[in-house]
Amino acid sequence: MTGGGAGADARRPGGVEFPFIWPTRVYWEDTDAGGVVYHASYLCFLERARTEWLRSLGVGQQALREDADRVFAVRAMRLDFLRPARLDDQLAVSVELAECRRASLVLRQAIVRDGETLLTAEVRVACLAASDFRPRPLPEAVRAALMLPE
């Protein structure tokens, strides 16, 4: 469960590399009858990588909800499907912070197989109060984990 990526110069404190890479394999349940990854399965791959990216930064989403009354919700997503993934493919799903606003993040993601990019995504994630689902600022602990000024 470690990030991989561009090398030692891309490391942040704590040893996490950027962009963060989450490896995954394509299972039968991810595919259609022809063994090609069903389009909605890519969303699951992207979501899991974002969750593990946050976890690698020390941000657990359950703790964020319980301790800071915050949750993240996908507000918008732009996907570009370039090539199909297939049953048993080993994939690398990347996450990179592109922009941070007071109550939202824009993330760039990609899904790669053997050096070939299969999908690119831009994901806008809103920070919301868990209690009322209204926009709220990112907690200080999250900003610190992302190494952002207050």
Rank of each mutant, 00 (worst) to 15 (best):
G3V: 07
D67T: 12
L43I: 01
D30W: 10
A141E: 15
A145Q: 05
D132L: 09
A76E: 09
L138Y: 06
G15F: 00
T31E: 13
D132S: 13
D30E: 09
Y38W: 12
C100L: 11
V95C: 12
V26I: 00
L87S: 02
L87D: 06
L79V: 12
A126R: 01
D89P: 13
Y27K: 03
R65H: 04
V37K: 05
R48A: 05
D30H: 13
E150T: 06
F18S: 15
G34R: 04
W22Y: 15
D9C: 06
A126C: 10
D69N: 11
G34V: 01
F72G: 01
E17L: 07
H39T: 09
L79E: 03
A76K: 11
L119M: 07
L46I: 10
A145H: 07
W53S: 05
A92F: 07
E47F: 03
E140I: 14
V95R: 10
A6H: 12
C100S: 14
R55P: 02
C127P: 02
R12V: 15
Q90V: 10
P13Q: 07
R65K: 07
A33N: 10
L128K: 00
E29G: 00
A49C: 02
R108H: 14
F133W: 05
D30M: 09
G5I: 08
E116K: 01
A121G: 00
E116H: 06
L146E: 14
T51A: 00
D9W: 13
R75I: 09
E52A: 03
D80M: 13
V106H: 05
F133L: 13
L107A: 06
R12H: 11
R102A: 08
R50Y: 03
V95E: 08
L138N: 01
S104K: 04
L91K: 09
A98D: 15
A8D: 05
P19F: 08
A76M: 04
R65F: 03
G7L: 07
S104T: 02
V125I: 12
L79D: 10
R50C: 04
R65S: 08
A6K: 08
E96R: 03
A129D: 04
R136H: 06
R113I: 06
A121T: 01
A8E: 10
L128T: 09
S131A: 11
A141C: 11
R136W: 02
E140A: 15
D9A: 12
P149M: 02
L105Q: 10
A141P: 01
R55E: 09
R11Q: 11
D114S: 13
A121K: 00
G58Y: 03
R143H: 00
A33E: 08
V112E: 09
L91A: 07
H39V: 08
V112P: 10
R11H: 14
Y38V: 06
A103L: 05
L138D: 05
S104Y: 08
L128P: 11
F133A: 04
P84H: 08
Q90F: 05
C44L: 11
V71I: 12
G14D: 04
V123I: 09
I21V: 10
G3A: 02
Q62F: 09
A98R: 14
V106I: 04
A130K: 08
V125Y: 04
E17P: 02
A141T: 10
T120W: 15
D32K: 00
E29D: 10
G7S: 08
A40T: 13
P19V: 03
E17Q: 15
Q90A: 15
A144Y: 08
D89V: 05
A68N: 07
R134E: 10
G4Q: 12
A103S: 15
C127E: 02
